[in-house]
Amino acid sequence: MTEIQKTVRFKIKRQKDSETQPHWEEFDIPYRAGMNVITALWDIAKNPVTANGQKTTQVAWDASCLEEVCGACTMVINGKVRQSCTALIDHLSQPITLEPMTKFPLVRDLRVNRQRMFDALKRVKAWIPIDGTYDLGEGPKLSAQEQQIGYVLSKCMTCGCCVEACPQYNDRSEFVGAAALSQVRLFNLHPTGKMQKEERLETIMGSGGIEDCGNSQNCVEVCPKEIPLTTSIAELNRQTTLYGFKKIFQK
């Protein structure tokens, strides 16, 4: 008895560059147990032929770790922004649609340029300004509770899910987005980072800062690392308000 090979239908948005009009291509990929979207994209690389037998080019997409710790392979799958490595075929309805994120300049097909997110980290001074890497002895003590809060915040992969889902984040606004804001909270709670707390708050008080948040709360819904982004933003609202008062009374 010959078994009929089960296939998976994909519908992929193709676009050569940001100047070209997008079009859709469909693919039938042989099904294997446990497969994810990445496996399917590699199948296409090995055999770039569409569902109706047309030769085509390999799909361009970004990937690196394939275990959801690097953030590279983020795309919009069946309308939802997420990493394609953890998108298991068994949990997706078909045809599976793959589209690039919409909030960043398109490079090609499913590939976008998320430089704006890294620039935002620069703007908000998301670092601890250590004196140097030479031996200065032990770091500050930290309670296990503080560590647990900080660790969750520092798992942010800069993947872009939160800003893709954010109605305030687009090419007409300068909004730094939830990911960068949450990093401000992280560094402002660290015993050393605290020392530059006000400097960091300054960076998010002007245009594109925390006031651009429209409180839609979409970010926290889509964050793959379950980072409490809205809690972070609420906490920063409190910090900037207090700092605002302080500035008024110190004048």
């Binding site: 670092w127 601890i128 890497t133 031996d135 200065l136 770091g139 660790y151 520092s154 560094f187 050393t192």
Partner: peptide
Amino acid sequence: DLLDRMGVMFNRT
């Protein structure tokens, strides 16, 4: 110690 000073969130006792 250096990594700790940079803010790496090492688990604590």
